[in-house]
Design a protein around this nucleic acid. Structure first.
Length: 786
RNA sequence: GCCGGAGUGGUGAAAUGGCAGACACGCUCGACUUAAGAUCGAGUGCCGAAAGGCGUGAGAGUUCGAAUCUCUCCUCCGGCACCA
């Protein structure tokens, strides 16, 4: 039989594994070190796509190998079930978001199981379950009591299509990260989390993390730290002064004018003194109307209006300089005011040239002395803004707050948690900035927990990113009804040893959950120290995976009709082939992108068929000693042990592609020379087991084994066997390869030189020239310099 | 503009100071076959009949030796960006 019946085999073993519970992870296991490997849980969109396969089935290879190495591996999965897209889809189909979401979960769970991944399903977590979001609300209240959650009137990003506010992180180039609609700026009262209080820790924490530089750098850019100085400029003939933030106090002598952001509060204060008030007001209004995107488009084309009638004094030289308002200065950064130094700053120069303002080219002065002279205050600014977490949408965890006219903002008492999301008829979002929950009067009207009088519930729900900021902790103790997780159980697993996920979460989920973890730590919610490793960072190691493109090398999308449906390929070739093909397609530890090659997958299918043919031949079972030639047996064993070393190392480094190529080389050799004895064949099967769990399990059983191959120990290589007794000596002349021949491993330089010089080819190239220098590298090469 | 990553056959890619292109796809030829988009075998960087030469984005440098290290430049991808 040439092809194996993947449908039968894969179904059989998936059932069997579920029945025997071999992937169930105990909290602790005698003699086994705990190891937590995490993949980002999926959003229940309704269908598993190639990206999911790539995200789950490839790290499964790693999890399986760690388990075979004797680690007690936590490899959990769940669903990030609240959120906008599911809600939008449900509204479109005119069905209940809850129904839609949970039906999707049921379907996707089946699909995920068809991968044959070694997830422990008994730890499954669904963020939309009241048992889960009870604790999301509980943690929110802890943050509130610590002063890390607050409600404030601020300018926010409003998506007019999704009809909700968005966090800064959810706006990309001025557009809604979910639907691509241009966002508007609105002034609204919103719930925020004080992530800025952790800016410095989020930055410094990166130093000790074993993460790729590009991930750390993206977070650093996002946090955007800059060290500078606050300098006061007094307004002439007035008691007022204006503070500016600058990183270049050394250029203070060159400051020839000042610019305020159009929304700077002092503008209104000084209304009476401003002679051209009408003009100023008009400009400020227009600037306010512009979206982020418009401002960006107009970049470099500077606009502005002078505040006529007032001047400020440059504290360095006491000269009076004019004040302008211009939208190239941002209200939300620094003090919302700058000293403009056209001689040293490109933007200031462009502005000065347009409005004919003086450009004074002065030499720089000493930073520290000038700071002292003008009484400057050193200050650090961050680009990072507080995280807006309230959403004017139905499908999310209700914010557990009650508003009482008498007592103000009150927290829902712990005993009343969870605040259940009520069933309502109309889920549609509204234009007025209110959640659809506002219409659920019965639910909204409550008694104030403090005074017992009439009060109203907060009707906004929490951003989905809040739900996912702590899910990795819940996996440690997923069914606990009395705590989000027991401290002792957290201690078993946290920090996560290896977190694999998508690059798109670098400045969203990854940053948020680091913040959550640090904040929860400060609230005393975590047991520390944890496993003697990192104290205040949740993820020891993070690796970003790449993305799978369509066969045309473009991002998969329905409009380009280049979408690969993994289900089709599973039906055709089986899960083992699909997962192994994805592992083979390119290095997983680099965030590259790889086109799906419909032909390429055939290579893996052929490989697995060949393994099956080898196994089905019963050659190994019948010939425990395999070939009769001892030296051939030794060579085969040597290749095998080299492969053990290579595959083990490559899996650890997420270089699954080269691990598979090593396995292919081994199989090519077995087929050519046909000399593996049964013990060695079994070692090979164990190497293949994490990659093709179903196929290897079937062959393993056919060999008469009673226990699963996945419970076997990962093979150890024999170092002595790997060490070669001879090697191929490369002969270089002036660094160019000219010849090579087999020599004993321990050959001396003198012996090697003698043997090399006696070779015909070398003689003919050297002629009667004498080498001026000979470089001999043991076990590699000899180089003659002439 | 600042920062980070990357550029290697027709394609996905190996090799991180020592034989460039492992492994796989594709392609060519052959075998088996009624058949082949199945399977097996041989070949496959470029030029050349061969000997040989050339070749890792471009150019320089370091080195006995560079895809790999250094510098300059070009291109692509990503983060930030009128952030003072």
């Amino acid at each position: 039989m040439k092809n194996y019946d993947h449908k039968k085999i894969e179904k059989k073993w998936q059932k069997e594994w579920e029945k025997s519970g071999i992937y169930k992870t105990p909290d602790e296991k005698r003699g086994a070190e705990n190891f937590y490997t995490l993949v980002e849980f999926p959003y229940p969109s309704g269908n598993l796509h190639t990206g999911h396969w790539y995200a789950f089935s490839v790290p499964d290879i790693f999890a399986r190998k760690k388990r075979m190495e004797g680690k007690n591996v936590l490899f959990p999965i769940g669903f990030d079930a609240f959120g906008l897209p599911a809600e939008n889809a449900a509204i479109q189909r005119k069905i209940n978001p809850k129904k839609w979401t949970y039906e999707n979960i049921d379907y996707m769970r089946k699909q995920i199981k068809s991968m044959g991944a070694s997830f422990d399903w008994t730890r499954e977590v669904i963020t939309a379950d009241p048992e889960y979001y009870k604790w999301t609300q509980w943690i929110f209240l802890k943050l509130f009591k610590k002063g890390l959650a607050y409600q404030a009137e601020t300018p926010v990003n409003w998506c007019p299509k999704d009809k909700t506010v968005l966090a800064n992180e959810q706006v990309a180039s001025g557009k809604c990260e979910r639907c691509g609609t241009e966002v508007e700026q609105r002034q609204m009262k919103q719930w925020m989390l004080k992530i800025t209080a952790y800016a410095e820790q989020l930055l410094s924490g990166l130093e000790k993390l074993n993460w790729k530089e590009e991930i750390k750098e993206a977070q650093r850019n996002w946090i955007g730290k800059s060290d500078g100085v606050l300098i006061k400029f007094s307004i002439s003939n007035s008691q007022f002064s204006i503070e500016v933030f600058t990183t270049r106090p050394d250029t203070l002598f060159g400051a020839t004018y000042m610019v305020l952001a159009p929304e700077h509060p002092l503008i209104k204060t000084l209304k009476n003194k401003i002679k051209n008030w009408a003009e100023v007001e008009r400009y400020a209004k227009e600037a306010k109307k512009k979206t982020q995107l418009q401002r960006q488009k107009e970049e470099k084309d500077k606009t502005g209006v002078e505040l006529k009638g007032i001047k400020v004094i440059n504290p360095a030289n006491k000269e009076e300089i004019p004040i302008w308002i211009a939208d190239y200065v941002l209200g939300g950064y620094g003090t919302g005011a700058i000293m403009a130094v056209p001689a040293h700053d490109e933007r200031d120069r462009a502005f000065a040239e347009k409005f004919k303002l003086p450009i004074v080219d002065r030499s720089l002065v000493d930073k520290d002395e000038i700071i002292k002279k003008v009484d400057g205050q050193k200050q650090t600014q961050y680009r990072l803004k507080d995280w807006v977490v309230s959403r004017q949408r139905y499908w999310g965890a209700p914010i557990p707050i009650i508003h009482c006219e008498k007592c103000g903002t009150q927290t829902v008492p712990e005993k009343d948690l969870p605040v259940l999301l009520p069933e309502i008829k109309d889920y549609k979002p509204r234009d007025d900035g209110k959640s659809p929950l506002a219409k659920a009067e019965k639910w909204v009207n409550v008694k104030c927990p403090k005074c017992g009088g009439d009060a109203e519930r907060e009707t906004d729900t929490l951003d989905t990113f809040v739900d996912s900021s702590w899910y990795f902790l819940r996996y440690c103790d997923p069914r606990n009804a009395n705590a989000f997780a027991e401290k002792a159980k957290i201690k078993n697993w946290i920090p996560v040893d290896l977190y694999s996920g998508g690059v798109e979460h670098t400045t969203m989920h990854l940053l948020y959950s680091r913040f959550f973890y640090k904040a929860m730590y400060d609230c005393g919610l975590l047991a520390l120290p944890l496993r003697g490793k990192l104290e205040d960072e949740p993820y020891q190691e993070r690796r970003n995976r790449g993305i799978i493109l369509g066969p045309d090398g473009q991002k998969m999308s329905k409009s380009k009709s280049n979408v690969i449906n993994p289900d089709e390929y599973i039906a055709k070739f089986g899960a083992d082939t699909v997962r192994m093909y994805l592992a083979f397609i390119g290095p997983y530890n680099e965030a590259g992108s790889y086109p799906w090659d419909p032909h390429g997958i055939l290579g893996i299918k052929r490989f697995l068929d060949r393994v099956w043919v080898l196994a089905a031949s019963k050659f190994f079972a019948l010939n425990p000693q395999a070939g009769s030639d001892a030296s051939q047996n030794l060579n085969a064993a040597r290749t095998l042990h080299k492969t053990i070393k290579k595959v083990g190392k490559d899996i650890d480094e997420f270089k699954f592609n080269t691990a598979i190529s090593a396995l292919m080389i081994l199989v090519n050799e077995i087929e050519r020379n046909w000399k593996l004895e049964i013990g060695n064949w079994k070692l090979f099967l164990k190497l293949l087991a994490p990659f093709a769990p179903h196929l290897t399990e079937e062959i393993w059983e056919k060999l008469g084994n009673k226990n699963s191959i996945h419970l076997e120990a990962w093979p150890k290589y024999d170092q002595k066997l790997i060490e070669e007794t001879t090697f191929e000596l490369i002969i270089q002349i002036n660094g160019k390869m000219r010849d090579k021949f087999e020599v004993p491993a321990g050959i001396s330089e003198a012996e090697a030189t003698g043997l090399t010089l006696s070779r015909e080819k070398v003689k003919s190239i050297l002629g009667n020239k004498k080498p001026s220098k000979i470089i001999f590298v043991p076990k590699r090469l000899i180089n003659f310099v002439i």
